[in-house]
Simulated assay, not measured.
Amino acid sequence: MAQGRGSAAQLGLALGLLLACLLLGADVAAAATYNVDWSFGADSWSKGKNFRAGDVLVFSYDPSVHNVVEVDAGGYSGCRESGTKYSSGNDRVTLGRGTSYFICSISGHCGAGMKMAVTAS
């Protein structure tokens, strides 16, 4: 008799874990990949798009003339390199919740509009 109750409890636990995995998997499956137009005027690229935590930004560019630096708000507004620097020319960045800021740290590029802020819910 005790074995039967244990089996039902184990089955309930297994079903609960399965449901949790499905719900978590649904959130991951909903993540989108965006190809960023990483060029001068990039600051307008993200306008009108709805981003979620887990979405992936793909920055494609010529690494001999540009880079991508993930900065804080001060680095974004002041065009100062203050964070993680990417320079492969095909960089993938997964968004967290909140606002992420990106600039090109090559002299004069950020000031000419090669920067963007992306807010993910």
Rank of each mutant, 00 (worst) to 15 (best):
I106N: 08
V68R: 07
S82H: 03
G48P: 07
F59D: 07
D37M: 02
W38I: 12
T33P: 03
S107K: 05
R92V: 15
S77T: 08
A8H: 13
A31R: 12
L24I: 15
A32H: 13
Q3D: 15
N50D: 14
N90T: 14
Y61G: 11
F40N: 00
P63G: 01
P63T: 06
S82C: 04
T33V: 15
W45K: 03
G25I: 11
V71D: 04
R52W: 11
Q10V: 14
S7H: 14
C21A: 13
W45E: 02
M116Q: 07
G108Q: 04
D27A: 12
L22M: 15
G98D: 13
E81I: 03
D43C: 01
V58P: 05
K115V: 04
S46Q: 11
G4M: 15
G48A: 01
E81K: 09
G75Y: 01
Q3A: 09
T94C: 08
A42G: 05
V58M: 07
V69L: 02
A112H: 00
H66I: 03
C79A: 02
L57W: 06
S46R: 04
C110R: 01
K49E: 06
A26F: 08
G108M: 00
M1D: 12
T33M: 03
C110T: 05
C110V: 06
T94H: 05
A112D: 05
T99K: 03
D43P: 00
L17I: 12
G78H: 00
D91G: 14
G89R: 07
V118M: 09
S60C: 07
D72T: 06
A120C: 12
G54V: 09
D62F: 01
D91E: 10
A120Y: 07
M114K: 06
V68I: 15
W45M: 03
A9D: 08
S77Q: 09
G113C: 00
S107Y: 08
K115Y: 02
R5V: 07
D62Y: 01
P63K: 05
T33G: 04
